[in-house]
Design a protein around this nucleic acid. Structure first.
Length: 725
RNA sequence: GGGUGCUUAGCUCAGUGGUAGAGCGUCUCGUUUACACCGAGAAUGUCGGGGGUUCGAAACCCUCAGCGCCCA
């Protein structure tokens, strides 16, 4: 992080297992327990038979696995029913068979009993709306101790809980020959036995269905009846949802808030105990006579009592980050000053894991005050093809390696430039190289500026004393600063970078510096030197958060200032915005580009000097020496062999010999057909009564101007074509 | 199965009703005293398909198809 230039207060570094954090964890546990929000209960939890621990819902990954789907006949003759299951071995622990109350096929059986094969136990047939009539046979087995849905139904219908597996996922206590077998071996054995008994109605495999896997070890998760600690989330989740609904907390980008609500509005109670050795121990102690006591941070448990061996889910402690880092439960000055924080910046992938937990824990601990005003969610970095990085795919990139190769600023700029709100970004080495090139460009531009006496000394003179090119770049600077401010305010980092990139490279380097070279070589350079100093000064400031290292270096050299880190943020100057200079420079750019194009079409080498002159509009011809410099035109007597007319300016050139008529014809004809197409588009629009009646006035004016311009273009090009004959 | 996105140039992506854009890549020319990590010029899209709304749709609505993510 330091290498990347991350600007944080390192003196406040915290680790979740620090003493201060532990104190907060114990305090909040007690506070929540006292408020009735923490309870212990037997529930079906996700259990990992390898890690030997409970898992929260979010630690379970669902994948499509090839399993089997078998139909088994329970009972005999009239008094029989066929159930469908993917986990045949659990039938040993069935406590009932459930059907939908409205299912005509089974109505007569509801309330009766059938014989459970293999274990030879009578079990009831119950009716529950949870059963889907269209799925399988419409009848499901109810294994209360080994399936969450079955557990729910069992609670409603008083079905007994029959535990048939130990914590390792090995069959136990069924009183059958299957005891001691692994769950998967038992599945095969049970199916084989049922087949032998003629109770297997159908088998389907492979049967692709979603199966939960442990996010740590990837083994298939086993739902298990177990005594665990839970957080009652309903009131906490509601407070968290309300905070966003009321606008007290804003989610950026807004488009991701449905995901937030989907989670907080449908949250199940949160299993917080883990059977791991690492983590905060649950602060509950058990007395010799079965007493239970939550021991607070300043309390000591009585002798002879033993502490609960389980630890807390890691998100229980990290969920307290927003206040525990400020010394809570002490009423510290930091807490008063910094809580709530303004913005939380994090990836959308931990919206559920972390952000929601922080919202819940914080609003509870801090008397309803949410921990931040804005939650800004960014995307994930992916490989150059937009694929998720993963070790198995071998497309993981190492940021350190890229920083070694291209510099931290290049990596930072690339990341910022790709950070479109809420969406993932692809990252390729080539693009980091491109950012490095941008950094080099800034370096060289500053070097050029220094060589030409750019300065930041003294107040910036009134704009009226500047030439149009200087006024233009000041105008563009203010517009850029204004737009960047607004984009950064909306967390639109990618667009802000884009604007800065083009301002620096296109406006400043490609046009301003080139158009001003003539001035810098003259005795009228002083105003431009001050302008260039100002523009670079402001540009480096605004780029500093994105590229801190190079801007710091350049800025200090340019301005002689102590450090850019503590310099003021640049502000747009509305009085610098000058539309007439902008349109003048735009016309000059058009002239330059068109002449270059002509030269190129004519096969002239870029460096080849050609006699030429500008006639017409004084606004532009006033800058003819700058234009000639860019276009390598020589000011001397000549007889023109080619004439161009661009933006109201006539350019006469001497190509010393005949021009390439074929190339020029091709060019002109191409331009002509493009102009004709534009003209037609405009004419169709203006000839459309509906358009004229309903389109806004400014759009109509725009189209009319386009019509005028393209008509003139067509006339000019046609004349030029005729002249070529 | 539920939810939620996405589909625009070769690639990665911007673009929330008025003539289709960027970076990279491609082609041509070029050692012009800031920069070859550069400069100049060029090519490239029936904006996934089909309907609809509108004077006007890449954008809004419906529908189909494909892809992704989250949750079950």
């Amino acid at each position: 992080m330091k290498r990347l230039g991350v600007s944080v207060d390192w003196s406040r570094e915290r680790f979740t297992m620090d003493e201060g954090m532990s104190k907060a964890v114990v305090s909040i546990f007690k506070k929540m327990h006292d408020a009735g929000l923490i309870y212990r209960a037997e529930r079906i939890i996700n259990w990992c038979p390898r890690c030997l621990t409970a898992l929260s819902d979010i630690e379970v990954d669902h994948q499509d696995d090839a399993g089997e789907f078998v139909q088994i006949r329970y009972g005999e003759g009239e008094q029989s029913i066929v159930v469908a299951t993917t986990r045949a071995e659990t039938m040993l622990g069935d406590g009932a068979v459930a059907v939908h109350p409205d299912d005509p096929r089974y109505k007569h059986l509801i309330g009766t009993e059938v014989l459970l094969p293999l274990v030879n136990r009578m079990i009831p047939i119950i009716a529950d709306e949870l059963v889907e009539q269209d799925f399988g046979t419409g009848a499901v087995k109810v294994t209360a101790a080994h399936d969450p849905n079955d557990f729910e139904m069992a609670m409603r219908h008083n079905v007994p809980f029959v535990v048939i597996m130990n914590e390792h996922g090995v069959m136990a206590g069924t009183g059958t020959e299957f005891d001691g077998m692994d769950r998967f071996a038992a599945r095969i054995a049970v199916v084989a036995k049922l087949k032998e008994l003629g109770r297997l109605v159908s088998e389907k495999r492979p049967y692709i269905h979603a199966v939960g896997h442990c996010s740590r070890c990837d083994i298939t998760v086993e739902p298990r009846l177990s005594k665990q600690w839970f957080v009652k989330v309903a009131p906490l989740a509601k407070a968290s949802a309300d905070a966003v609904r009321s606008g007290a907390v804003k989610i950026e980008p807004e488009a991701l808030s449905p995901r937030y609500f989907e989670w907080v509005d449908n949250m199940h109670d949160w299993c917080i105990s883990r059977q791991l050795w690492w983590g905060h121990r649950i602060p509950v102690w058990y007395g010799p006579n079965g007493e239970i006591k939550v021991v607070g941070p300043d309390e000591v448990a009585p002798d002879e009592w033993t502490q609960d061996p389980d630890v807390l889910d890691t998100w229980f402690s990290s969920g307290q980050w927003a206040f525990s880092t400020f010394g809570w439960p002490e009423k510290s000055a930091d807490l008063a000053k910094f809580y709530p924080t303004s913005v939380l910046v994090t990836g959308y992938d931990i919206l559920f894991f972390w952000v929601v937990r922080m919202m819940m824990m914080s609003t509870f601990a801090m008397d309803g005050v949410a921990p931040f005003k804005t939650i800004m969610l960014h995307g994930l970095v992916r490989d150059q093809f937009g694929k998720k990085m993963s070790k198995s795919r071998g497309n993981v990139i190492d940021p350190i390696e890229f920083m070694d190769k291209y510099g931290a600023d290049a990596l930072r700029f690339t990341l910022a430039r790709g950070a479109n709100p809420g969406t993932d970004q692809a990252l390729a080495e080539d693009w980091i190289g491109g950012s490095r090139n941008f950094a080099t460009k800034l370096w060289n531009a500053t070097r050029f500026a220094m060589l030409n006496g750019a300065t930041t000394v003294g107040p910036l003179p009134e704009v009226s004393s500047f030439n149009a090119i200087d006024r233009w770049i000041l105008s563009r600077l203010s517009e850029t600063l204004r737009d960047v401010d607004s984009l950064l305010g909306g967390y639109e980092f990618a667009r802000a970078c884009e604007i800065l990139y083009h301002f620096a490279w296109d406006d400043l380097c490609d046009w301003y510096l080139e158009l001003s070279k003539e001035t810098f070589a003259s005795d009228k350079k002083a105003p431009s030197q001050r302008v260039l100093g100002h523009v670079l000064d402001q540009l480096l400031r605004v780029l500093h958060p994105i590229m801190p290292f190079i801007t710091e270096e350049l800025w200090c050299t340019l301005t002689g200032g102590e450090s850019l880190v503590v310099a003021h943020w640049p502000e747009a100057n509305p009085t610098h915005i000058d539309k007439s200079s902008e349109s003048l420079v735009r016309a000059m750019q058009e002239v330059v580009t068109e002449v270059r194009r002509f030269r190129n079409d004519q096969g002239l080498k870029p460096s080849q000097k050609v006699p030429g002159r500008f006639l017409g509009s004084f606004d532009i011809t006033k800058y003819s020496s700058a234009l000639s410099f860019l276009l390598k035109l020589e000011d001397k007597e000549f007889t023109p062999s080619a004439t161009l007319e661009i933006a109201g300016v006539k350019i006469e050139l001497d190509l010393t010999g005949s021009i390439d008529v074929v190339a020029e014809r091709a060019r002109l004809e191409k331009d002509l057909s493009a102009a004709k197409k534009d003209l037609q588009t405009a004419e169709v629009k203006l000839g459309n009564a509906g358009f004229m009646a309903k389109a806004p006035a400014d759009v109509v004016v725009e189209i009319k101007e386009r019509l005028t311009k393209t008509s003139a273009d067509i006339e000019r090009i046609t004349a030029a074509l005729a002249a070529l004959k």
